[in-house]
Design a protein around this nucleic acid. Sequence first.
DNA 1: GCAGTTCGAATGAACATTCAATACACACAT
DNA 2: ATGTGTGTATTGAATGTTCATTCGAACTGC
Lengths: 196, 196
Amino acid sequence: MNIQYTHKEEQIFQSALSLILDKGFHGTPMSQIAKASQVSIGTIYHYFESKDDLILQLFSYSKNKVSAFITDSVFDDPITKENYEEKFMIFWRRFISFYLKHPSIFSFLEQFYASPYYEMYQKKYCASNYSEDTINRFLNEGLSLNAIRKMSSHILYTFCLGSVIFLIRNSIYGQKKHTENQINQLIQTIWNGVKI
Amino acid sequence: MNIQYTHKEEQIFQSALSLILDKGFHGTPMSQIAKASQVSIGTIYHYFESKDDLILQLFSYSKNKVSAFITDSVFDDPITKENYEEKFMIFWRRFISFYLKHPSIFSFLEQFYASPYYEMYQKKYCASNYSEDTINRFLNEGLSLNAIRKMSSHILYTFCLGSVIFLIRNSIYGQKKHTENQINQLIQTIWNGVKI
DNA sequence: GCAGTTCGAATGAACATTCAATACACACAT
DNA sequence: ATGTGTGTATTGAATGTTCATTCGAACTGC
C-alpha cells in the first residue's frame, strides 16, 4: 500500500509542496522546484516524466502521508456504541491537527481536487481514494452501531468532511486563526448534527 | 453596490467562466477566451488591462451574481424565533440550488479562493465579502433570536457553509449527483447541529 | 567499462501583451 | 444631406517572455 520514495524524490516533493503553497500550481515552474530542491532540472526529469507526472505523483505522495496519519490509533481497539462518541471526537481532532501541521499538503490537495488534474488522475489510475475510504469506514461503523442517526452515508460523509475542511481552509488562508476551543466547538456541533 | 457591465463584458465573462469550468484558470489562454466570446484578442485588452485584471474582475462579477440571488426573498418579511427554522431551510436550499444552476460560477470561485489571486484581491481592494456578510447576518440573527444554540459566530459560519459547499462541489465534480431528498437530509442535519 | 545519475545550456512551443491600422459612431458645420 | 473631425471600438499579426522539455556530455560507484 505505502510506496517508498527515494531521498531525492522526497526532497523534490517537499520543495514542490512548499512552493505550491504560496505560488499555486502554475506559478511554480520546474526551474524553481529544481532550485529549491537543490538539484538540476535534468535530475527532476530523470525521476519524473513531465510536470504533469510530477504533480500526479505528488498527489499520491500527499494522500499517502494523510492516510498513514489518519489510520493509526483510531482502529487499534474495537469501536463500540459506547465509545463511538469519544472516538468521533478524537478522529476529527486528529484530522484537523494533521492538516494544520501540514498546510502545504492541504493547500496542494485543495488545488488538486479543484483542478482538471483530478479528473486526469481518476482516468489514469481510477483508484479509489484511500483516505476517503478510511473516513467512510469509520462513519459507516457509526451508522451500523446505531451510534449515528440513520442517513445516507454519502450525506454523512459530506456533512462531516465539508465543515472540517472548511475550518482548516479558513485557518490556513484566513486572517483569523482558530483556538483549540473553537475547534472543539465545531466538532461538538457536528456531533450534535449526527447523534441519535 | 451593483456595477453594470456592458454587453461585451458580459459576453467575455460568460465565455471565460465556461472555459475555466473545464480547463481551469491556466488551461484557459486569452486567445481561447477571445474565440469563445467572438471578439478579437485586442478587444479583450481594450476592456481589461491584463489577464490578472480580467480574472479579478470576473471575481467581482461572480460575487455580484451570487449576492443578488441570495439576498432577495429571505429578508423581505421579518425573521422571528418561530419562523427561523423554516427560513433556515429555505436559505440554504436556495443557496445550493443557485450554484447547482451555475456550476461555472461555483467552480471559478472555488479555484479563485484556493489560488494566490484571492490574496492579491484582498490586498488590492481589501473589500469585505458581501455574500459572506449576508450569510453572517442571517446566522447572527438566529443567534440573537435564541433560535440557534450559543456558539462562536465564526464557527457557526464555518460549520454551515463548509458542509453546504462540499455538497455542491461533490455534485458538480463528482460522479454521483444528489437527489432533492439527500439535499434536504443534509440541511436537516445541519439544523440538528445548531438548533437549541 | 558500464549502468545509473546528474548536469544545464539549447530548443521550441505556448502564451500574454503590444500596436499600428482600420472601422465605426456621433456631433457639428457647411 | 454631405463632408469633416474626433474619439472610441475592433482587429490580428508581430513581439518578447516564460516555461516545459530534450539531449549530449560529464560524473559516480561498482
